[in-house]
Amino acid sequence: MTDVFPPDLIRLIVSFVIVVAFAFTNAAVLVLVERKICGHIQRRPGPFEVGPHGLLQTAVDGVKLMAKQMLVPRNADAGLFRAAPILSFVPPIAALIVVPFARMLQVRDLDIGVLFILSLAAVNVLAILVAGWSSANKYSLFGAIRAVAQNVAYEIPLLLSLLTIVIWVGSFRMSDIVAAQGGFWFAFTPMGFVAFLVYFICGIAETNRAPFDLPEAESELTAGFHTEYAGMGFGLFFLGEYTNMLLVSAIATTLFLGGWNGPAFLTTAGTGFWATVIQTLWFLAKVYGLIVVMIWVRWTYPRVRFDQLLNFCWKILIPISMANLAVTAVWLKL
């Protein structure tokens, strides 16, 4: 029997199911959380009709999206048009497999963990490009052009800030990075803090959320790259966005905020069941804390202009992260 179903394969399938289920649940919860937080920021209760306090709103919305017909515009490149939502949604889920939720709760501890995540995250921009190009809509095309310029630019400081931590730890492996933060978290060191700030700003830009939501830019480009999408095609973009938010926050937590370590004495490095539960809770608390900040920023700030966005990246973020990397390297050498 063991030959037919090798334990590793079973483990892989189970993990895959769990990761996908987690991604979907996360998106469902985040949609509601975002609408609730946004509602309260705007002095209104948010969704309130379906279920107690509107808790079932997302389920209803999901049914609505799935019931809708997915229209393909006449001039669109049908194949690419259908592929784009999947392209935006699968990579962030795949990237979740190297995220260490707890010491013993990680699907694969690859020794190139950070690189793996970054390479998968880079596919996101391709998805937006494909979606915008294949829609045969000028607004979508503008969204795609903006997305490419924006994501390519912001990936540089993002990489540089992560590199700061990687050379500090001397490993790409996620578990090594978390283990190095047993005593102190990188975000609370001067260089780590700068890197964390740069990373978080770039992270918001990479997920195309306000104030950097230029590829969507409702008031300028109607809905940007997903103008022509209806039903579940649009739903998958939504799912991809929330999974991306989760991923960005998970990386920030792992690399800068001590991963599954709790603060000071409230932590455990054990491998037992309860230790895993506590570690997971710490991890998720930090992840969702960051996500709430992202939501908060989105519903407070206006959108930046395109040239300001790029100037901010090339003239401010990249020099800062370069200098930060250099200072870290020198400091490590001393």
């Binding site: 306000a210 519903w299 700030y301 959108r303």
Partner: peptide
């Protein structure tokens, strides 16, 4: 105007 600039919240305050 702020909605045009991409800030979603002020309109709810002013409508209040």
């Amino acid at each position: 105007f702020l909605l045009d600039l991409g800030a979603f919240t002020p309109i709810l305050y002013s409508f209040d």
